[in-house]
């Protein structure tokens, strides 16, 4: 164990950096979106196959359930320079795991408040949608992207811009 750390969890191995896909977008803003396998991922997929455009800056990470997203995942994304983080899940009462989305909502609401206290307010978005709601997906990503654009890049981003 490493007693000099507050938590003596073994150090996580850093994988080689993923290629900066969204770096090709003109403004280089990057939004990490956690999508649940059963609903919001389906919505994003449908938006794609129906050729409904949504901001290129959104990078999707598929998770089994929005309830799987630990607040730490969000913090690590922001710490490593993500400009915004979205957590999206199924509609109320439609969660594949019954209450995962509700749990996620409560966690993220409190986390949003926490983020406000450390100068990263507004950079976390939580939304619920069904697999058929491609339009909702497009609207959500667009409005969140607009908000992030207004807030500007994450101050923690490497290189500072």
């Amino acid at each position: 164990m490493n007693p000099s750390k507050a938590s003596s969890t073994p150090k996580r191995k850093r994988k080689s950096k993923p290629k900066a896909k969204a770096a090709s977008t003109p403004d280089k803003l990057r939004i990490v979106s956690f999508c649940c396998h059963y609903c919001s991922y389906g919505a994003a997929d449908l938006a794609g196959s129906s050729k409904m455009p949504y901001p290129l800056n959104v990078e999707i990470i598929r998770v089994p359930c929005s309830g799987r997203v630990d607040p730490l995942h969000v913090l690590h994304a922001l710490e490593n320079g993500a400009d915004g983080v979205m957590v999206t899940g199924c509609l109320k009462d439609q969660c594949h795991f019954v209450t995962g989305n509700l749990h996620a909502e409560k966690r993220m609401m409190k986390l949003q408040k926490w983020l406000e206290t450390i100068g990263l307010g507004g950079r976390l978005e939580f939304q619920l949608m069904s697999a058929g709601m491609a339009k909702r997906w497009v609207e959500t990503t667009k409005s969140f992207y607009d908000r992030i654009k207004e807030l500007g890049p994450n101050p923690l981003r490497k290189g500072g811009k």
């Binding site: 507050a6 938590s7 969890t9 309830g67 630990d70 730490l72 913090l75 749990h103 409560k106 409190k110």
Partner: peptide, 24 residues
């Protein structure tokens, strides 16, 4: 934090999720 807990506060935030919204 316990050995397997990365951040005590965040871990507890996770545990709170089961509480009713009204209480929260």
């Amino acid at each position: 934090p316990a050995e397997t807990v990365w951040d005590q506060g965040v871990a507890m935030l996770d545990a709170l999720a089961a509480l009713e919204e009204k209480e929260l």
